[in-house]
Design a binder for these strands. Structure first.
Length: 285
DNA sequence: CTTTTCTCCTGTATGC
DNA sequence: TGCATACAGGAGAAAA
């Protein structure tokens, strides 16, 4: 599932393959992919035509292409992959994918950019950019741990002020962005903290350790091209990542903990699964 | 206001 | 074999 490392892999692919190119035509298949573009899919397609891609940027799990706007400030083509979205750069004559939702062709006649999404939790929209270069649409999303704007001490203060379970807070993109179910479990395992602990019951140094471990595990995953459980997460060239083999907790139910050998447990949490070592990560009473 | 639950979607795996 | 059900889960709306 695309979390920060996987989205960053995709961003790098876009930066390499799409930057500097001018959109000849945008074709949207169905309205759902553009549901967050309030003026509608036709408006989106029309406004993409003729614009040049100047940069590919990211905050947390959102990424966006900075596009030239004629006689105006640049705009952002904001993209979220949801849990099964893919951005593929491929030959125009490649057959349509089963869940193809959008296709951008370029005036150089080269490879197209396609948005393919089996579950359509993802989508694309146009957004104005704020003064700090972040799309206005995602102004409520906090900086991720790799940004200059990330203020660890401030994040720690906010997290310890919450009485919610610490894993719930880690997954809340308003506190820190980019963390999803996989890397939350991995970061908590590395920090030896149970995700069900109320955030307010943890010391500030303990919360800082969780954040640093989470950042480190995401950096390690990025080096491996991200985590791919199946063909749903791939980079712009259709290739999978290799971090799955390095996961210590997520998806490891019944397997011995890499530190102490105790079988990893799986429990339902927030309508999804949480994996943890019952010995290294003591549950709250 | 804060916090939690629900909903969107489809392919795959499992159970009867 | 076939059909029903569970599960994967990010984000925002809706409810509490």
């Amino acid at each position: 599932m695309p979390e920060l490392p996987e989205v960053e892999v995709v961003r790098r692919g876009l930066a390499e393959r799409v930057t500097g190119r001018t959109i000849a035509e945008a074709a949207l298949h169905g309205a759902r992919v553009a549901r967050r573009h309030i003026p509608g899919p036709d408006d989106l397609a029309a406004r993409l035509q003729g614009r040049t891609v100047r940069a590919a940027r990211r905050r947390g799990k959102y990424l966006w292409l900075v596009l030239d706007a004629p006689d105006d400030e640049p705009v952002a083509l904001l993209i979220h992959l949801g849990m099964s979205g893919q951005l593929l750069v491929e030959r125009p004559e490649a057959p349509d994918e089963r869940h193809l939702h959008a296709r951008l062709s370029f005036d150089d006649g080269g490879d197209e950019l396609r948005f393919v999404d089996q579950r359509t939790f993802g989508g694309i929209s146009l957004s104005d950019l704020s003064a700090d270069g972040v799309p206005l649409t995602i102004a409520h999303i906090a900086p991720d741990p790799f940004e200059a704007a990330y203020d660890e001490a401030a994040v720690v203060r906010r997290i310890t002020a919450s009485t919610s379970a610490v894993k719930r807070v880690l997954l809340d993109q308003r506190y820190v962005s980019g963390v999803g179910n996989i890397y939350a479990d991995e970061g908590l395992w590395r920090a030896r903290v149970h995700g069900g602990r109320p955030a307010s019951s943890l010391t500030k140094p303990a919360v800082a350790r969780i954040l640093r471990h989470t950042r480190e595990v995401m950096a390690a995953a990025l080096e491996q091209g991200g985590t791919s459980f199946d063909a749903l997460y791939v980079n712009v060239n259709g290739a999978s990542g290799y971090f799955e083999r390095s996961l210590a907790a997520y998806g490891q139910e019944g397997r011995p903990c890499r530190r102490c050998g105790t079988p990893i447990r799986r429990v339902a949490f927030m309508n999804r699964s949480s994996y943890f070592c019952p010995r290294c990560q003591r549950a709250p009473r």
